[in-house]
Nucleic acid binder design. Sequence first.
DNA 1: GTCAACGGCATTGTCGACAATCCCGTCGCC
DNA 2: GGCGACGGGATTGTCGACAATGCCGTTGAC
Lengths: 223, 223
Amino acid sequence: MADAARDDAALPLPAAIAAALEEDIVFGRLHPRERLIEEELAERFRATRHTVRQALAELERMRLIERIPHRGALVKAYSPEEVRQLYALREMLETQAAALIPLPLAGDALAPLHALQQQHAAAVAEGDTRAVFRADLAFHRALYAHCGNLFLAETIEELGQRAQVIRYANLRSQASMEWARDEHAAMLGALRAGDRAALLALCVAHFRPAREAYLGQHPTLLA
Amino acid sequence: MADAARDDAALPLPAAIAAALEEDIVFGRLHPRERLIEEELAERFRATRHTVRQALAELERMRLIERIPHRGALVKAYSPEEVRQLYALREMLETQAAALIPLPLAGDALAPLHALQQQHAAAVAEGDTRAVFRADLAFHRALYAHCGNLFLAETIEELGQRAQVIRYANLRSQASMEWARDEHAAMLGALRAGDRAALLALCVAHFRPAREAYLGQHPTLLA
DNA sequence: GTCAACGGCATTGTCGACAATCCCGTCGCC
DNA sequence: GGCGACGGGATTGTCGACAATGCCGTTGAC
């Protein structure tokens, strides 16, 4: 079990608890199938059980946990086949979205993306994995927001959330974080240059490795 | 405001309330922007406010309503531009899914679909719009379940739910219900014959009209 | 006459306590 | 010795009451 609540004060309490648990799941401090007990969490976060309950509902909405009536909440586990299907859909959507981004991207549209990329790079440099995680999410959201279709962008984000355990398993290796950083930079270059083919290739190449690594590491996870 | 709770007993109470409200929204008994007041609903469904709250959370998850903290729940409204984007994504996903269904579909895979189509046809014959609505949902879910990608099927269903107000605005016209029925039959034919081109054409043609009708009818709905 | 501050009312959000459910070890019967 | 019924303990679900919030009409000052 992980350490106590991080002070993400300022955001509503249930959201803060959900965020903390989300990180616990992403960073493997809570493993698939592990049970989440409301009262324990309430104590850990010094909140009422009611508040914890709301946080669990939020995590269920994000599909990071599964709740079985009268039985409680489990960290969700994906079978290799599910991972393959999830990634197939993500690839299809992200490819489509990348194809829809107007190119070249105007300078004032590029600036915020660039700022996010810098944030990500800084977090990588400091080895602050939590910040890397958040910055990476923000970068990808901002990137696909430019596809011009609100629903497509939302769907991509939701599926990305579901895949978090897989996507961010590599946050333990400095090398792969640096890889991601450099690919982000390359994407910005393609956006600026208006090089559609390069952008598409980068988007696909960007998330394939995580899938492979996960499937290699959990070869026969039954579920 | 609509009439009292329908006896969808047997399913958990919050789900039953959510289903009833869902139908109210789909059939236009609750219009976009209309406010949902917890206590009124509690009285109407003879449930506690707590139960109603859960139902609202469920409807929010389905994106049929919007909840603003301390201000309550509103039936969600879509601007014409949002409708266009939503439909663009739906078209893309349903086309892809239809392209992935293995053809021709084996007989024992066809049978359940056929049964659902019959249910739909029966409901159309009786003019039971509620049943038509439910049967149509079931038919499409079963159809796209055959695409072989769980997540794609789920995503299609979720986006379909979000589009319900648009999709089912035509349930007030007997003619369009009969149209839908005939198209379902044609889809089954294409599945059986293994005619991919026909299947794709049907899937696209099947939901375009609802979009046009909605956009025509709500020409400048601000939002 | 206009505008800002106040206060009452409708509504939503949270709490603590209690009820319902399920898992699992124990007992008794065959 | 195996197996089903029973029951205790842990855990989740629900309730009624109370607190917090925001809207809106009213008031009063300038």
